[in-house]
Design a protein around this nucleic acid. Structure first.
Length: 568
RNA sequence: CGGGGCGUAGCGCAGCCUGGUUAGCGUGCAUGCCUUGGGCGCAUGAGGUCGGGAGUUCAAAUCUCCCCGCCCCGACCA
């Protein structure tokens, strides 16, 4: 490709509304342009990079027996009503009607469609297992899209679905997919971790997220400093502390006046006690009625853990009215003593003595609160959010935290959708069984953005060679100099004939501009053709990753490049 | 949905508070000269519904109201 013919509109300045570096660089490198909030055009350079990722994905999906399909982006409401998600999904599902006033949506995901397809076409155990995948544009009407294509409303996703006869088969499919994902992200040159995750609204029994490590990541991942345990923050389990020795005496319960002191900070400051001697009492509304969650003052409650513990469908912090009704006091003074709703307490509170709690009365707290003397806990469990240095649930060593970008997520779904949509097969004995499913997603655009987050420097993008839009950029210093021009084109044609993807910067621009753009675009190899080196019959090869420069004989450049790539 | 901010040339911004020449600067773009190993220099030029509408006023980019779009924070969420 000749640069003069290519649409690569680079920008010198950083667009004002780009927050994170991958967004800035993709705009500056002329890869993407915004059409509306969360909706982007992919220009030729981005298209080529996306294509590289898609090719890697296809190869790895095919390797584990996946078959590619394309499912409709526009989906009728009927199948969503069948699965129950037409009601459940909320505003993120973009709905509209056709000319006949029938309801449709833009597909945010394709469980319904694929399950509908399979239930119609697959009838026998002989046809299972089956894995289907597609690479397709999805639409989720996110409340707050941001960071360019990192969290867009319209985005390209690879989604795969596995169909098995039984749990064991589904677990095998899951395992194969896990390995395929590992290979995919390794091939993309990414530093990542697979962590355990909550299954959320997709449902199912277990799940892993593939997280690219990056400080700009929106998610926090927790991993063990010594064993292989890793999970996302909402899932990360904490080893229960050993039973504490009760050598302290139980003091007498005491009510104290704490006018206007609601927060942990205010109360600790006022009473002169450390936060870990306080109990935070949080009132939640659930579909099982109101419940209280207790954590230590220096801990945060984890709603996902509490929700899973209660096994409820709905759980949210109670509003002021409910808090008042349940505790008899305004928000900020709730405590377990005298509460008439179920109380769940975090493991860290087991055996804690003489604690400070809210008094269930305005401007009042209790001191020297002890269980079971003063209140009853239904159950102690792990319901708080993990902190750095907490003990690992598996081995007890310290947990560490890092930020990550979720680029892939795999779920073992079980029969959630096959049940609601009635996808069954007949086994050997002619008996009807539900097909056991799994679903597996990769954000293709997000993978590219994550790669840039991880691979850039002050001058621009530093593409891993597997994702680079071109392998080589040829940069003649002066395009109007016939000697330079001829050598540049000779190398260009030679490499092109050998299957190397080459971009030749034939623009009549000053060298500085071309060098800056070359760095910005992040193409792994740059061949500079200048008068100075050409006088010795040489051209300069610069490696974008290391910045290393070497002079290579004009005649040997083809072999040189080929050798370089065979080592990659 | 709540809070905050922004909207002036392709991009980055000033002007607005305190209304009053032909709306300005940098960059980019076009043309010419010059220069040619890291966003060079000089000159000339094109490019604007000042987000939209209504109002106040002799007069509105500037003041008021409404609407739209965008960004940030929060809540929400695959």
């Amino acid at each position: 490709m000749l640069f003069s013919n290519a649409l690569i509109p680079t920008l010198k300045e950083i667009p004002a509304d780009a927050e994170i570096v991958s967004h800035q660089l993709m705009l500056r490198a002329g890869m993407i342009r915004k059409l509306a909030t969360g909706i982007y055009s992919y220009l030729p350079l981005a298209q080529r990079v996306l294509q590289k990722v898609k090719t890697i994905i296809r190869e790895e999906m095919n390797r584990i027996g996946g078959q590619e399909v394309t499912l409709p982006a526009v989906q009728p409401s009927e199948i969503w009503e069948e699965s129950g998600r037409w009601e459940l999904y909320g505003k993120e599902l973009l709905r509209f009607t056709d000319r006949h006033n029938r309801n449709f949506c833009l597909g945010p995901t394709h469980e319904e469609v694929i399950t509908d397809l399979v239930r119609r076409e697959v009838k026998s155990y002989r046809e299972l297992p089956l894995t289907l995948y597609q690479i397709q544009t999805k639409f989720r009407d996110e409340i707050r899209p941001r960071f360019g294509i990192m969290r867009a409303r319209e985005f390209v996703m690879k989604d795969a679905y596995s169909f098995d006869r039984d749990e064991a088969g589904a677990e095998e499919s899951y395992r194969k997919m896990y390995q395929a994902y590992t290979r995919i992200f390794e091939r993309c040159g990414l530093e990542f971790r697979a962590v355990e995750a909550d299954t959320g609204s997709i449902g199912g029994s277990f799940s892993h997220e593939f997280m690219v490590l990056a400080d700009s990541g929106e998610d926090v991942i927790v991993y063990c400093s010594s064993c292989g345990y890793g999970a996302n923050l909402e899932k990360a389990e904490i080893k229960p502390p050993d039973a504490p020795s009760r050598n302290e005496t139980l003091k007498k319960l005491e009510r104290v006046s704490t006018p206007g002191k609601k927060t942990i900070e205010e109360v600790t400051g006022f009473l002169g006690v450390p936060p870990h001697d306080l109990i935070k009492t949080l009132i939640f509304e659930t579909d099982q009625g109101p419940v209280a969650g207790l954590v230590r003052g220096d801990h945060e409650i984890n709603e996902v853990k509490l929700k899973n513990l209660l096994n409820c469908e709905y759980l949210a912090l109670a509003d002021d009215g409910t808090v008042e009704k349940v505790t008899g006091s305004p928000r900020g003074f709730a405590g377990p003593v005298g509460l008439r709703i179920p109380i769940y307490a975090d493991n860290s509170l087991r055996g804690c003595l003489n604690m400070v709690t809210g008094g269930n009365e305005q401007d009042t707290h209790c001191k020297n609160v002890n269980t079971p003397r003063d209140y009853t806990v239904i159950r102690f469990a792990d319901i708080r959010t993990a902190l750095e240095d907490d003990p690992c649930v598996r081995c007890g060593n310290q947990l560490r935290m890092r930020r990550g970008i979720e680029v892939g997520h795999i779920f073992k779904l079980g029969i959630k959708y096959s049940k609601s949509l009635h996808a069954t097969y007949l086994d050997r004995d002619g008996k009807e069984n539900f097909i056991v499913m799994g679903c597996y997603g990769i954000g293709v655009g997000r993978t590219v953005a994550a790669a840039i987050e991880q691979h850039h420097d002050k001058d621009g993008i530093v593409f891993p060679h597997t994702l680079a839009p071109y392998h080589v950029l040829i940069l003649p210093i002066e395009i109007n100099d016939d000697d330079l021009r001829n050598v540049a084109f000779r190398i260009y044609n030679q490499l092109g004939a050998e299957g190397v993807e080459v971009l030749l910067d034939d623009r009549d621009e000053r060298p500085g501009i071309k060098f800056k753009d070359a760095d910005l675009l992040g193409i792994p190899l740059r061949i500079t053709v200048g008068r100075r080196t050409l006088a010795q019959g040489k051209v300069e090869v610069k490696y974008r990753t290391s910045g290393t420069v070497e002079l290579v004989d004009c005649e040997k450049i083809g072999t040189h490049i080929k050798n370089h790539f065979s080592n990659c």
